[in-house]
Nucleic acid binder design. Sequence first.
DNA 1: CAGCGACGCTAGCGGTGCTAGGATCATTGT
DNA 2: ACAATGATCCTAGCACCGCTAGCGTCGCTG
Lengths: 190, 190
Amino acid sequence: MSTQARRERERAERERAIVAAARDLALAEGWDAVTTRRLAAEIEYSQPVLYSHFKGKDAIMAAVAVEGFAELADALAMARASAASPRQAVADVAAAYVAFAEQRPALYDAMFTLAVDLPFATQDVPTDLARGFAELAETVRPVAGDHDLETFTETFWSGLHGLVTLMRSGRLRRPGHDRRLAVLVDRFSR
Amino acid sequence: MSTQARRERERAERERAIVAAARDLALAEGWDAVTTRRLAAEIEYSQPVLYSHFKGKDAIMAAVAVEGFAELADALAMARASAASPRQAVADVAAAYVAFAEQRPALYDAMFTLAVDLPFATQDVPTDLARGFAELAETVRPVAGDHDLETFTETFWSGLHGLVTLMRSGRLRRPGHDRRLAVLVDRFSR
DNA sequence: CAGCGACGCTAGCGGTGCTAGGATCATTGT
DNA sequence: ACAATGATCCTAGCACCGCTAGCGTCGCTG
């Protein structure tokens, strides 16, 4: 009976290895470089093994994204906790959000621009994603005025997301980024 | 000598047909359905002909995107011209921007999320794109306060872009969209 | 120890963007 | 008038993609 336990452990370990390999490869060379063949080679198994763990490549990307949600939530929480004032918290959290997206572009893509098939605005959204959103909401709560907090937070989030994606895709030039972020924070700090 | 003129005319016509076919196919079935083979079949030529007109599929998408810039600029200009007040203009232009993205999602994708290789923040940006940006800038000029106008416009644009992309990728629910847009407009109207 | 079931492999399917090479046809020079 | 030249467009194919069918092997169970 213990051999079965070992097999299950090995299987879980292999699943972790798949997600880790996908994540590392995406961070190093972008998602285009993450093919099922390379992934299989990386974990030293054959290609079909991937499909005994995940429904397809999208599901693997979704798993990577879920890991990213936890990291982002942590980063936002840390920025909020160490801010001197509520208004400063907005600026710090915004900066942390943008820094996360800039330092882990592939991770950010998996979370917010690719892999559409993971639950977002439904009932069972990943808890770490909800945590990140809650961090944003608590951050802007003191400056939301009489706006609906959820709506206000979503709009602020959209502003951050727009800045990140437009800059990373070359639609906005790198210099000026700090000023744009400052404008956004200013507009959402009343 | 006139036969050469005819050939050039036919060639230009064929190039227009390629872009039109790509555009129609993308609008009808999304960019995933736009393959070089289907495109070739659509224009009733063989696949390699595409490559005598464009460097690759990305270049075809870029051509479609450039057409889209003209449409967007027109839509924004019309919204701005018919607005009753400067503040109303901000709301109307924002609504026009979002409506454009919602009604022509494939076109919007080509313009702002895919096809990275077209000139954006460089010297020779497509004139229609510059026109669209100028429309945005003139719209927000009365409400920009003492912010740098270009920075202010870019940030407002980012907010719109974020709303559009997050909603279209399922990260934001459809209901609440109007309220989010209202919050954004409110924040950027002083 | 025989039978069975789970597991992971090889091989392959239908598709992608893109290109090499040859055939065809109009234009040009003699 | 005819041959050489050049442009034009097609067939065929390359290397790769995500994904799957089917088989062999190995270990557990009766």
